[in-house]
Simulated scan of single mutants.
Amino acid sequence: MRFISALAATAATLTSAPAIADVTVYSYRQPELVSPLLEAFTKETGVETNLVFLNKGMIEKLQAEGDRSPADLVMTVDISRLQALVDAGVTQPVHSETLDANIPAEFRHADGEWFGLTSRARIVYASKDRVKDGEVTTYEDLASDKWEGRICIRSGTNAYNLALVSAMIAHHGEEDTKTWLEGVKSNLARKPSGNDRGQVKAIHAGECDISLGNTYYMKKMLEEPDQKAWADSVRIVFPKFEDGGTHVNLSGVALTKAAPNKEEAIQLMEWLSSETAQEIYAQVNGEYPLKEGSEASELVQSWGGFTADNKPLGEIAKLRPTSLKLVETVDFDG
């Protein structure tokens, strides 16, 4: 009887003890970009994390797993991918005073379905030798015939370019954006191909003078011995919309609909919005923190400042189908 009582007492103690649950994160971002954050979170809170890297099929995986999904959070890049998760019904809203205080309204879903963590600007990489200071100032200017045969760009259907086209629609409407796309296409030095870094390589090789790309690729190129010369041949220019600011996109996080460890998952989301986490993320990825008071790395700050466009990213994300239709209508990649 004493043995049974002891077992019962032990069981009661284990039941009443607070459980530290694992938080499982499905991520489109590569492990080396996310792991430093998760390791710092665990060190500070004691909550363990499981990181599952996916390079495609996140929505399909979550839908197939349904209520049995082990995923608590999803981390991804690009506003359209975040919105696609919401549209697929695989996320749930989070109502958190901490998140609302740390992440500006234009960088989070209106109903709390996703939250931005860091931002990157869609900028112009310009040849130091062949492009004068002040020669390019706006996105609209890229359709000017002064750039004929001087622009390199990746596919128009790439998510980053579609987000920019969507922002152009938000500013100028469909018809003017179609005309703009036709103008940019007529200025291309070659058929769209490759990635953002590949366009800078082409500038270094003299194939073109400017390209569109995300800011953080400068950091990546500078860290690669065989790409540093590409980076050194260009400078970053922050164009803006004629009636707005510089187009930015996001890396972000959302709570899954299944979320077996919801409380701990929200704890991680709130921590990711903190100044400590924002600066870790920005340092590792060469991006811009969103929380006011958090600072970008010295390298990122050396590229200069800009004013982010004030069009809500949620509005821009909803224009993705329209932007894709326009890109295909003008046969941008043809």
Results as ranks from 00 to 15, higher is better:
residue 89 G to W: 15
residue 68 R to P: 00
residue 66 G to L: 08
residue 80 S to Y: 09
residue 318 K to Q: 15
residue 261 N to E: 10
residue 219 K to N: 14
residue 312 P to H: 02
residue 192 P to K: 09
residue 239 P to N: 07
residue 11 A to G: 09
residue 98 T to A: 07
residue 75 M to R: 13
residue 181 L to K: 10
residue 175 E to L: 09
residue 134 G to D: 06
residue 190 R to I: 02
residue 243 D to P: 02
residue 152 C to P: 00
residue 93 P to R: 10
residue 266 I to K: 14
residue 50 N to S: 11
residue 236 I to V: 15
residue 222 L to N: 10
residue 214 N to A: 08
residue 206 G to S: 01
residue 231 A to D: 04
residue 84 A to C: 11
residue 282 A to Y: 07
residue 248 V to K: 12
residue 112 G to R: 11
residue 279 E to G: 07
residue 167 A to T: 10
residue 265 A to M: 08
residue 26 Y to S: 06
residue 144 S to R: 04
residue 126 A to E: 04
residue 263 E to Y: 12
residue 301 Q to C: 00
residue 53 F to I: 01
residue 173 G to M: 11
residue 141 D to M: 13
residue 256 T to M: 12
residue 121 A to T: 05
residue 53 F to G: 00
residue 251 S to F: 12
residue 137 T to G: 04
residue 300 V to N: 02
residue 271 W to R: 08
residue 219 K to A: 09
residue 140 E to R: 07
residue 224 E to V: 07
residue 197 R to P: 01
residue 237 V to D: 06
residue 169 I to H: 01
residue 42 T to D: 08
residue 242 E to G: 05
residue 165 V to W: 13
residue 24 T to D: 05
residue 95 H to Y: 13
residue 164 L to V: 09
residue 228 K to F: 03
residue 49 T to Q: 09
residue 328 E to G: 05
residue 287 E to P: 03
residue 233 S to R: 01
residue 132 K to V: 00
residue 138 T to M: 05
residue 7 L to T: 04
residue 316 I to R: 13
residue 143 A to R: 09
residue 268 L to N: 10
residue 101 A to N: 13
residue 87 D to L: 06
residue 71 A to T: 10
residue 277 A to V: 06
residue 149 G to H: 05
residue 202 A to F: 03
residue 191 K to G: 06
residue 25 V to S: 09
residue 108 R to M: 02
residue 274 S to C: 03
residue 62 L to T: 06
residue 264 E to R: 10
residue 236 I to A: 15
residue 231 A to T: 06
residue 205 A to S: 10
residue 4 I to F: 15
residue 299 L to M: 15
residue 187 N to P: 01
residue 202 A to P: 02
residue 263 E to F: 11
residue 250 L to W: 14
residue 306 F to M: 08
residue 301 Q to M: 11
residue 122 R to L: 13
residue 177 T to A: 11
residue 302 S to Q: 02
residue 32 E to Y: 14
residue 301 Q to Y: 05
residue 18 P to H: 15
residue 117 L to N: 07
residue 259 A to I: 01
residue 123 I to K: 07
residue 199 Q to H: 04
residue 73 L to C: 11
residue 106 E to P: 11
residue 133 D to F: 00
residue 243 D to W: 01
residue 50 N to M: 03
residue 190 R to S: 11
residue 240 K to A: 12
residue 70 P to H: 07
residue 121 A to E: 05
